[in-house]
Amino acid sequence: MAARTGGRLSDRQIRNTHDLSDIAAMVAEVPETAAEWPDLADGERASFAAEWSNYMGGVAQLIGDYYEGDLTPDQKGDLFALLRRLQEVGPLLDRIGVRRPDLLGMDLLLDPPSAARQGAASRPDAEPR
C-alpha cells in the first residue's frame, strides 16, 4: 500500500500511507471476525468494536484529506479500494453491531450511476472506477 509516487511525501502523506495500510488490514479481518462473533467473550467484542471505532475515525480523516487534495494519486486509489471494501462488508458490520463509517459524500464518487438514479447531484471530480 506504499505510495508509489516519485516525489517526496509530506508528513501527512506518510501518515496517510500508514493509516491506509492499518485500516485495510483491519477491514480484511471483518469476515473472519463476523464468523467467530457468536463465540467471542464480551471483552473481545468490546475491544474489536473500540478499535473499529478508531479506525473509522481514521477513515473520516482520510476522506477529509482527499477533499483537501492531500492524497497522492496512489493513495486516492487505495482509499477508493478501501471504501468499496467497506461497502462490501457493510452487511457483516450490521450483523455484529459495529458502525459503518460515515462516507461523507464519498458514496457519490464510489457509485455515480446509482447516486444519479437517486437524484443526487453529480460531482465534477468523480474518480473513475
Partner: peptide, 13 residues
C-alpha cells in the same frame, strides 16, 4: 461489566 480496561489508544479522529 468486565471490570477491566477495553483498550487504550490515541484518537485518530
Amino acid at each position: 461489566p468486565t471490570g477491566h480496561w477495553t483498550t487504550a489508544y490515541q484518537l485518530r479522529g
